[in-house]
Design a protein around this nucleic acid. Structure first.
Lengths: 221, 221
DNA sequence: CATGATTGGATAGTGGCACTCGCCAACGGA
DNA sequence: TCCGTTGGCGAGTGCCACTATCCAATCATG
């Protein structure tokens, strides 16, 4: 398959594919001659994954490169490899607020950290801490809770726990789905794709459920 | 409170506040003189809401303006007002893919629409259809499912239903939380803030739960 | 063999958008 | 009185995914 066909079948413009090749998001094709390279189904799959991350997941190009690096690293165990790949996903917005409340920043962060720790302890979840407590997911959770607190919403471990348990049920289903794929490489790729692609579905379902429940409670007054 | 103080207490740069005033995201202060205006706690709350939408929710400025228009529209019933506000939130990425698969685009969309309809019927949810089937949430759900299908993931109503039910449980808790606020205006504002701000928390909990479950199943091999 | 189209590669430019800078005339407190 | 500050406004900045253009080498065809 040549570049033009890859572009057609993926629906991605040639110039964009060239850009991805340059940025290392797509491995170069097998060189047939000085001016021709050959691409296969693997390239197509990879290209779709990249598009999913960038378009749907809004993952910055630099992070996509990191994620793919982990996906392709066969020297790692499944959990680690999967964790490493997802590790690199977040497009963290920005930690510091600058000239704002000054010390209040650290205050909210500290309180949030305490609540999150308390939550994890209550649930018996260990992951984040054992891996070094610096998991991006863990940190983004703390940051999100801190934001809530700064805006004056009381959001403690007791309130979070039921949400966490519900999300755990969701996670169980996620992994069940991933396990339907045979090879480990495919599982890792599926996990990344699913993490990216399920989120809009979940979010939409969430909002739809809110609308439904709101209509149930208040009608359409 | 003058501009400088509003800036200090909110942590938002003066130039940015001026920008929000210009864009109509923040109502003008009470004019004290030709060169001085007075801002109150309401401005501070509104400013925080705007920041939450833009920074955390990544809602484009134009949509923020629309949302606030609905939040401030006291002529609407609660459900409608809330729905209208949330209605304007999404930062829809882009519907069409352009030169891609051509007709396959509509094919995936049609299949996705069918699955979503089937799901809603199975659950007995009515909201989206009664309001006119054009709810942005409904459409974004269809779009998200279509994307999954295009990438080759089998994602039908049967698979979605349990997720939807879990998200409904989440929604019940959300509304319980919103109801702890007394006034309707505050409820609407809280609902918007919650919709924006809870998402990162939920997402982080989801990912954390995935890590936890993954570690439980596969250890740290 | 001639010749026009296509390829991979490289460089510079585009567009959108949330800000941010700099300037202005009009205050307002010491 | 007078200098620092205010609100307002137009133009500029930075970021970043993408795209337009050009180029020489090569392939496909008559």
């Amino acid at each position: 398959m040549r570049l033009a066909e890859l572009s057609e079948r993926s629906g991605v413009a040639i110039a964009t594919i060239k850009y991805y090749l340059r940025e290392g998001l797509l491995p170069p094709g097998r060189r047939v001659s000085a001016t021709t390279a050959d691409y296969d189904e693997g390239h197509l799959r990879r290209l779709r994954l990249v598009r999913a991350m960038i378009q749907v997941g809004q993952v910055p190009v630099a992070n996509v490169r990191k994620v793919l690096g982990h996906v392709d690293d066969e020297s790692l165990g499944r959990t680690i490899r999967l964790g490493a790949a997802l590790w690199a996903l977040p497009r963290e917005p920005e930690p510091a607020d600058g000239d704002g409340d000054g010390g209040a920043e650290d205050e909210a962060m500290a309180a949030a950290r305490a609540e999150v720790d308390s939550l994890l302890r209550a649930l018996g979840w260990s992951t984040a801490r054992e891996v070094g407590e610096l998991s991006p997911v863990h940190r983004s959770l703390v940051a999100a809770v801190a934001t809530l607190m700064r805006l004056g919403y009381p959001w403690d471990a007791a309130l979070m726990a039921p949400y966490a348990q519900l999300m755990h049920q969701v996670a169980v289903r996620d992994l069940d789905f991933v396990e339907t794929h045979p090879s480990e490489a495919e599982q890792v790729e599926t996990a990344v794709a699913a993490t990216i692609l399920f989120r809009p579905v979940l979010n939409a379902l969430h909002r739809l459920a809110q609308e439904e429940e709101s209509a149930r409670r208040y009608g359409l007054e």
